[in-house]
Design a protein around this nucleic acid. Sequence first.
DNA 1: AGCCTTAGTGTAAGCGCTTAGATTTAAGGA
DNA 2: TCCTTAAATCTAAGCGCTTACACTAAGGCT
Lengths: 394, 394
Amino acid sequence: MALADRGGSVVTLYDVARLAGVSTATVSRVVHGQDRVREATRAKVQRVIEQLGYVPDSAAQSLSRRRKDVIGLVTIEREVKQYDIENMGLLYYDEILRGVQTRIRDDHRWSLLIATLYEEEERDYPRLISLTGKVDGLLIGEGIIPGALLARLTERIPVVIIAGDPGKTDVVKADNHSGATALFTHLVEEHGCRRFFHVDGPANVPDARERRFALGQVLESHPQCGLIGSYRGILSVQSGEDAANALLISHGEALPDAIVCVNDQMAMGVLQAFAKAGVRVPEDVAVTGFDDIYPFSLNDSPLSTVHQPMRLLGERACDRLLDRIARPNLRRRVELLPTELVLRSSCGCPPGVMTRRPVLKVKAAPSPGRPAANGQAHGNPSSPAGRPGWAATS
Amino acid sequence: MALADRGGSVVTLYDVARLAGVSTATVSRVVHGQDRVREATRAKVQRVIEQLGYVPDSAAQSLSRRRKDVIGLVTIEREVKQYDIENMGLLYYDEILRGVQTRIRDDHRWSLLIATLYEEEERDYPRLISLTGKVDGLLIGEGIIPGALLARLTERIPVVIIAGDPGKTDVVKADNHSGATALFTHLVEEHGCRRFFHVDGPANVPDARERRFALGQVLESHPQCGLIGSYRGILSVQSGEDAANALLISHGEALPDAIVCVNDQMAMGVLQAFAKAGVRVPEDVAVTGFDDIYPFSLNDSPLSTVHQPMRLLGERACDRLLDRIARPNLRRRVELLPTELVLRSSCGCPPGVMTRRPVLKVKAAPSPGRPAANGQAHGNPSSPAGRPGWAATS
DNA sequence: AGCCTTAGTGTAAGCGCTTAGATTTAAGGA
DNA sequence: TCCTTAAATCTAAGCGCTTACACTAAGGCT
């Protein structure tokens, strides 16, 4: 003891009470305002608080109030070891985080705890469960954590999933299906693209799955179009380069009309690889992304993509979680946020001009305040995999 | 009560103890392993824990142990209202955060709380102080919070400053001076630049100050060179565009040889503005950044810049903080991390090749493990402002 | 004057966990 | 068998705060 002990409470409520000659209850009341305390008493206590530099201990407060005033944000990072970590660029979560922070700031009392999970690392699960004891609610990115685990979390504290599948929890997500449909339709109808190559993401990522499904639908409804192949990457820039190189090898002499990428990172990787290989975009081939990550938009040959309101995703998810913490009996809700088609030059639209087109939604998102019907967010059958005609060919 | 009460402890240690027929002390020991408990007892307790789904309440643990096992990361965002928020792109802190998270992950027991402060918003100060009651230590980005406030924090809990001035606390920062010197010298000696324009950052940002100082020194030691003007921006892309436009107006017919920007964001802004105005880089003018933000490196006309090891900054700062929490009496230390010159094409180096050059430090950073001498990290006089010959002219 | 409010304050019982110290049990040893 | 010692377990006192409830004093009524 004594040595290196300094952890133990500097100044406690008791010290303040003693010095001010009042009870701890009174001090507590002064600290929290709003309670009826005579002005003279309040001033006296306040003076002592300042003099002593008293700051309440949050652990004691939490214990006593049975509320931690902390929410957690859990994000997922995948296969870090496989690629140079610098290439991952988790720009997507960075924006989500920003959104959440914005909300937290508005409501002074909350703090934000963050944790990153590594995909497929089961040893992270206990960590996640013990997080449950540290927060009042959890925001979880991309609902790819196993259902059983999710259930264990949910029965303990409120959980809101960001960009995940509508399961039994609240979900806030972007309208991938409409956005992707608009983008692919644009390629077909306005640029006359026929032969597509799909730079896809992991099979189990919900966003990727929905975009993939939309591609299948668009191709199906345009019989003159088809998929010449696809590549399953891991959403990183490097992975996009790999995809492009694989394509160059397999279809070097007969490039597709368009390469549609599941996210902007992969599209940037494709652009990088093509620049090195001397393939011109969009002259030789159109390339599109998805998400509209800000720094990428600064590129000289900027990406046509679908804007996903990432910050808003964070904000709304946070709102929802706070709501549910306050009133646990709310009905479950899936909130779908609108996407926007962003046309720059990489798809063949005139360079130098950027057009933003709101995408009309396939099905209306539940208007804020009104609970949505339970069930799927839009009409997707839940297992689009295995549809004929557009399985990987490459 | 009853309604919406669900906050109150689901399963407590007592429940486990009762059901397992042991004392709470024993359960506690089982939960924390390592203590001497008979194997049979341990198994029995463990079984009950699983059956009940018991998760310890962190508030109670913290209160009892007098330790929260949480550290806080405080970042600063500036003048958000003034510019489109999308343009801010806090890529720098995102990387730092990643570094911190990496470390947190290694040492399972810690959690990370994050808070953003808005510059000059005094109403954020109380928030910062009350943070002090929620964490065991604080990592603070850019030491531009007022000294008095910092002092109040420091006397309460361990604090490590990232990229700030060596004051009375521990500091972890990049070697701005050496990096900037190398970059500017490169421009002068290898590209023959003579007339410079400085796209500067806020006066009170330590990183900006050091880079500015290095510029002054380099210009001074090369009498044939000079500053034709400077622009004080706020580190954002938009702000960089503004700088370029201002320059175009004031020196449109006689552009400088080089535009040196205090960070990559501003440099990107300059590039954007020049692209619109038809100014060619590097043919008409060289442009350089600082930091080496990853997504910007994917640009077609990539930026020459100085790489700052942002992740490492986060990791080291975290290490240092954890160290100090464990042993509060450590000697104060300033840790200087090496920078690296990254030559791409925007300064006039041959396009397509990227050269990374380690920068040799002006003064050695204290080797890890050995405390540094107190005082300035390297030989800068503390007030480089007001030096003759390079004040803003524009 | 006696009674009832009401505002202001105090008392003390938790909140769920850890842990020093007391107690019990088991294991050796003579 | 009894004693000593070590191992295992238990008891109970906090940790610093909140808050239901109790109490007091001062008005305001009738």
